[in-house]
């Protein structure tokens, strides 16, 4: 019998792309994989939680049950409640707060807020950072009047870095309605500077590399050189920064909500659940520790994944 000829399917599995190599290193990093698992689980929870709290009455996080104030986690719901106010299964999985609202339902709602604010804010900062950093790096020598494009953009970046971001956010939030979208945009627009610096530095060094010069020599148009030749080689540090940036953005949102400048009640976020809980820290410690631990877990997971990616992108480790 003849050996089977190589089909496209089995040659494709042989392809050893740079991304695959990164994945192989990352897979061996237990902490990073742990972080990734937590994040995947939290994402699923956030999406399901969003759906459940929106559409299923059982999970309504705004249901007030004054008979069931400060119930500890896993306690039975009171028999006096009307059926439509009962928590899922008749049990308060994570207890209730000062108004008898189900903390489990509130945490579910908050998880979606935290995740989406983290991801959207970081997406905004990545787009702004990559565009500004890319322009500064690629068109570094182009002069606009007395200054170069590079100098103009990077001095603006420096100026932004000088502003205490948290106070800037507080001012903006005080002036604009504190909707979830405004908070996403404000956090995103105040956190792009590190990414811009990274991308600029990468572009400055990539510009001189022979394969980019070769792309020019082939007569390829500038957008193609920027997006297909330079960008894929500059994204590694951006991905790392972005991953860790999600953690920072979630912390910022929580801090804003904690201070009362964030997403407004009755809409629950981890930050405002925590803020409510701080008044009852000795009587109802779960109100404080549950959102606190959730914030801690998600921030830790993003940081571990980010650090793992930083390692995995290190070419010296890939060669093994």
């Amino acid at each position: 019998m003849q050996a089977a000829p190589a089909t496209p399917a089995n040659t494709a599995t042989l392809v050893d792309s740079p991304w695959r190599r990164v994945w192989q290193v990352l897979r061996r990093d237990r902490l990073a994989m742990g972080g990734l698992c937590v994040l995947v689980a939290l994402t699923v929870v956030a999406l399901l939680g969003k759906a459940a709290t929106e559409w299923i009455v059982l999970f309504d996080p705004a249901t007030v049950r004054l008979v069931d104030k400060f119930r500890p986690p896993l306690s039975q719901a009171s028999a006096l409640l009307p059926v439509r106010d009962l928590p899922p299964g008749g049990i308060y999985l994570l207890g209730t707060d000062a108004l008898g609202r189900d903390v489990f339902a509130r945490m579910l709602q908050g998880s979606f807020v935290s995740m989406s604010i983290g991801l959207v804010a970081v997406s905004i900062s990545v787009v702004v950072g990559v565009v500004l950093g890319g322009i500064a790096g690629y068109y570094a020598d182009v002069r606009l009047g007395p200054v170069t494009v590079d100098a103009l953009i990077m001095r603006f970046t420096d100026a932004m870095l000088c502003i205490p971001v948290f106070f800037l956010i507080l001012v903006v939030v005080a002036l604009l309605p504190a909707s979830i979208y405004n908070i996403m945009i404000v956090i995103g627009l105040t956190r792009w500077m590190g990414i811009a610096r990274f991308v600029r530095a990468e572009f400055l060094s990539l510009r001189e590399q022979d394969f980019v010069v070769a792309a020019h020599a082939l007569g390829l148009p500038a957008p193609r050189i920027i997006f297909l030749h330079m960008m894929p080689n500059a994204v590694a540090p951006v991905l790392v920064t972005a991953t860790i940036g999600v953690a920072t953005a979630i912390l910022t949102e929580s801090a804003l909500s904690f201070l009362g400048f964030g997403v407004q009640p009755p809409f629950a976020t981890w930050g405002n659940i925590l803020a409510d809980g701080k008044n009852f820290i000795f009587d109802a410690p779960w109100l404080f520790f549950i959102p606190g631990c959730a914030i801690f877990a998600i921030v830790l997971a993003f940081n571990l994944l980010g650090e793992g990616m930083r390692e995995a992108f290190n070419p010296k480790l890939q060669r093994r």
Binding site: V15, S17, P18, Q209, D210, F211, V213, A214, A215, A217, L218, G219, P221, L228, H229, P232, N233
Partner: peptide, 25 residues
Amino acid sequence: GLRRLRRAMQIVFQDPYSSLNPRMT
């Protein structure tokens, strides 16, 4: 015009490592 001319004039580089895009087949 320069782009059209590039078809006729090419370059081969010294360093076979840095002259190829690592993220392209």
